[in-house]
Design a protein around this nucleic acid. Sequence first.
DNA 1: GCCTCAGGGCCATAC
DNA 2: GTATGGCCCTGAGGC
Length: 875
Amino acid sequence: MSASFQCSLSDSGRSEPKGNEVVETNNDDLSSLQDSGTKLDTTHVTIQLPESMQGNSISQQKMQELIVHLSQSGQLKDDGKIIIEVKGTQEKPKERPSEGNSDEISAQQSVCSVKAPQTHSIKYVTVQQASGTGGPSNLQKTAFIKAANGSIQTKSDTHNQSVPAQGQTEHKGLGTTGTYHILTSTNGQHLQQSGQAQQPAYILIPATQQTQQINVAPLNSPSTASSSSAPIRVVNQGGQHIILQHANNSSTTSTPISSFSLKTASMLKDGERSVVVLQQQHQNPAPIVPVRPFVQQHNNRLPPAPPAIAAAATSATFSANTSTSSVRVSRGGSLGSSGKESSWQQYVKQFEKLGPCPICGDKISGYHYGIFCCESCKGFFKRTVQNSKRYACHMATPSSLCDITATSRKKCPACRFVKCLEKGMRMEAIRSDRTRGGRSMYPGSRYLRQLAARASGGSEVKCELKGTSAGGVSTLPAIAPLPNAGVSTTSSTTNEPFSKIDSVHIMSLGVSSGVAYEIPASEDVGGGVYLDPAVLEDTGGSGPASSSTFHDESIYRLPVRTQENIDMPKILREIIKVEESVESEPEERLDFDSTDASQIGVSTLPPNVTEEEAAVYRALLNLADQRLYRIVRWSRALPVFSNLDTDDQILLLQNCWADLLCLDCCWKSLPTPTEIRLTSTKCINLDAAREMGAEGLVDSLLRLTQDLKRLRFGLIDFACLKVFLLMQGELVNLKAVRQVKQFQECVSQLLMDYNATSCADVPNKFTELLVRIPELQRTSAMARELLVDKDLSPYLSANSLLMELLRSDFHRQPGNLVPPTSVGPVAMDTSGQATTFLASQHRTEDDVDGRHRGVFQTGDTMGTEASSYSTSGPL
DNA sequence: GCCTCAGGGCCATAC
DNA sequence: GTATGGCCCTGAGGC
């Protein structure tokens, strides 16, 4: 969720607008204006944008997030309505009156009224935008359909404003309205264009480029550029700017925004508020170089016209050519050649005006691996990824990334590489087969984005190219921005390059050379910043599909942005934050030497087990025990869960601990599809597992890991799936059934939305993930049976959490005839009664009894010792 | 068939 | 000896 939405929603009721900001009001006057007599619960949200923005739009996704957030916060009831005002008045931002009264609502108003027919509540959201010049108007109608299962779907439609849609209240006549088209649906697919000739493009401009001037040229032909261009819509998203190209280029007479800057000062923060404001650069627009259509009719094949180039109207190569033909420059020198310059020199010339390389400040040479950057950084990035290079920053106490400039870039390749990633370079753009030429097909590649743009209309391609990478700014998918879009962004409120608060873990799995080390990364490295290890084994033809270069070597994992302005709902942020917090804890030890039998208390080994083997078992079980403690810490840090009754917490953890352990194994093993990763430096493969009698388990884990990898299982997926597994509201004896169910549904919905909107390259990802749960549960059942088959007492302390949970498993088996004489508190509350999905794994009583005999043979002692858990233990 | 453009490779230079 | 980076080659896709 965008900062503006987030902030406005976080403060209920009226708030004081300060400067250019988003405010939320509950203006009864507005309500009365919009409410056509119905007694609906009304929520008002005002989005304020400054002067000179010819319009402003909210993407459908934003709308949906807004609705979801309002629903979750209880502010939006069924049969309620929401009025979203998008203010874009003529007043100057700083002179704007402090209170948003109805008189100010002169620019736009959006109205969402709700009527809930039975199982679905259909929320129509209309966004009306006014230029103040009068003329025909259109409405974007978006239906938010809240299904019975809690999911929210959207549908879009465009219609003329003259006839208010059913269920909507009347809009105030505010002059010319424009229509923007929603580009993505909840399933991540592009919606068909409806009605208008063009569709908008979303262009993400990283906030780091706040000082970069962005020139926006009209879409129309150059000859009409100055008079009939489409206005640009600007919204804020998670510290990034989204420029939404107006779709209506046919009838609007609004003045084009020719040039504006994104200024640091415009990114205001007011407590939890974060507001984006775009300020117009010039009252009198600078000369605009018509942006050449990238495709189709004009046969202009210039490289994308960067904004700065557009500004440089007198540029030799990108002259202010007002004709449809233009000087074409190609490296082949076929056109526009000076005769003496090499083709390459000519080619490079195109980018001279682009501005500095976002990484080192050198000259941009072109679009490389996802961003505009210089040749040097291109080569550096290529070598680093291709050769799996490992760097280390030698700063003793790094608090920020080393300064990377054209002169200093050689000094710290570690920080340079992190900066490459941070600025949006994509490792998946490096080809594993090293084939030359052709179009790159990695997710997010410009080519794919162009294809997508064409498929959805074509005109926005021009816009996309125009807005692409101002001054070397990295670009992001113009449509349906990827979750890791934030890779290319930095803080929206600061120009601080980086911070080393979070870390990029580049961990080697090599035993000897595998020195785990950290490369400092930015806390601003962007929303969803997780370079999925699966990406490195992309199945795509041009990606590093079958590369063995990467996946066995390193994992590049950047933290998901968790700062306030992250573009995701609050609950999701909290979950991610908890996940990151737990992940940041020191890694568990897998120590084959320190766990001696004396600590266990049982020194008698089974006759066929050597001390050496016992040490291995002890180490592994101890590792599992440590992981379980971590799981408990994780769960207790979760919202909702931490507020549950202790009995409920115990019950829920009893139910899923093995699932979580197995999922954790898979998660850690994503970079090593042929081995299950125990720690960052130790793995177990099938051969080793066979020797330990765990071949089936490891094989199942591997298959699961590979499935998840194929699905591009990321941190958000991981975190949400864990919550999903934990919060099982169907458990018998669970007290807070409703809260648990609601939380699970909420997280499920968030994950579905996230996957639908941000993981479009993995069809049905959410469903695919859910389908894996039974397999995960089978695997975890296998693991528990394996543990039960082994007599663990020689290897594991009696008061280990693992032992306790296994004991609780035993008690939860239906029909267990011989309960242990003493049970730990973990099992006390629900012994013999709680049934779970795992309990449905049928076992015979004899089997269960026999398998557990070893586990419980010291039950009395364990019960006594373990009882401390109830007060001071993990639970 | 030509052009685009974003990949990779080569190799002189720097460290 | 290795890393760097400037220059050029390559080739799928678009027109």
